[in-house]
């Protein structure tokens, strides 16, 4: 009962947040200089002022901004994200078409960065002054400071010219299917580099956080109690310490989701990965307002869902937090 009430409150809160994000994005985009009809005009090799005015009217761009906003929000509430100016397709189907590629990329880098990052952090905390620990610390600082596009470019250069063993562009090699297993392998091979470059920054962050958190926890009184019980050092470390040290990491996973989405825009552009990030990048260049707004709406929705899930997960792993 308490849980249901709690969930309901959460959902209402999230809905309010999405609405706020929506309005903000709408206003920001209109404030930016330029206009989609200019882009269209450019593509068609010029157009007369009359045709441009007609187009503006057709798209509703001639109405006052407040009115446009009301119309837009109303449409979204009825589940309609509008039509792309550029593709002439419903934004919803554009997004859904590209969603799987992005989800695949995000999940792969999430798993890689959390698993490798926390493992490195734990290893580094075993002997905080040891060589391994120092190496990991230096590696994390480098990884944390390297911009995603830079890591991505380096990987592209490395694997395109020096070791051409992994594909550096796209998601599939051949358009024709070679059977489900070979296709999957093909996608997996294409996934390696983009996922790694997106994971790198996150990995660095998780390892730093895990190391700090482990060192903190290892000084706690209950660790002394665990040792006084006669437990093996391994059990003290991995059961009693890690189980506590992982708590702040869980919080960060949720907070990092937004950063990962932002990183995906860069990575997908660098590696030509056909996901939402590239669609966003292209839509900005094309001033494709409906697509861009749809993407922003959708990604803020994803981020909020991720944060709510993290919150729930946190309640699950930390018994001290009560629902309510």
């Amino acid at each position: 009962m308490a849980l249901a009430g709690f969930l309901l409150r959460r959902i209402l809160y999230a809905a309010g947040l999405v609405l706020a994000v929506l309005i903000l994005n709408f206003v920001l985009i209109r404030l930016a200089p330029g206009d989609p009809t200019e882009t269209l005009a450019g593509q068609m090799g010029g157009m007369t002022e009359e045709i441009r005015a007609e187009l503006r009217q057709a798209y509703g761009l001639d109405l006052p901004m407040a009115q446009q906003l009301v119309i837009y929000v109303g449409r979204i509430l009825s589940g309609d994200l509008g039509y792309s100016y550029f593709f002439n397709l419903p934004v919803t189907s554009l997004i859904l078409e590209r969603l799987p590629a992005t989800i695949l990329l995000l999940l792969a880098s999430l798993i890689v960065s959390v698993v490798i990052g926390t493992t490195l952090g734990v290893l580094a905390s075993r002997k905080p002054q040891g060589l391994l620990s120092q190496l990991i610390t230096v590696g994390s600082v480098v990884g944390y400071s390297a911009p995603v596009f830079w890591t991505g470019m380096l990987l592209v250069i490395l694997f395109a010219s020096v070791f051409p063993i992994l594909p550096v562009s796209g998601i599939r090699s051949a358009a024709i299917s070679q059977g489900p297993w070979l296709d999957m392998l093909d996608v997996a091979r294409h996934l390696v580099l983009p996922a790694l470059s997106l994971a790198f920054v996150q990995m660095a962050q998780y390892s730093r956080l895990t190391r700090a958190s482990m060192l903190d926890v290892l000084g706690a009184d209950y660790i002394r109690t665990a040792r006084a019980k006669g437990l093996a050092e391994r059990t003290v470390f991995f059961k009693h310490a890690l189980r506590n040290a992982i708590l702040p990491v869980v919080t960060i996973i949720g907070l990092q989701f937004g950063n990962m989405l932002a990183g995906a825009i860069v990575v997908e552009t660098v590696f030509n990965w056909p996901g939402l990030g590239r669609l966003a990048f292209d839509s900005v260049l094309r001033r494709d307002y409906p697509t861009l707004l749809g993407l922003l709406f959708f990604s803020s929705f994803l981020v909020i869902v991720a944060n709510q899930l993290t919150d729930l997960a946190y309640r699950f792993v930390d018994p001290r937090i009560k629902t309510g």
């Binding site: 009184d221 209950y222 002394r224 006084a228 009693h240 506590n244």
Partner: peptide, 11 residues
């Protein structure tokens, strides 16, 4: 130990 509040593992 001296500190019962913190000597048990909270999780």
């Amino acid at each position: 130990f001296q500190e019962p509040m913190t000597s048990l593992n909270p999780v």
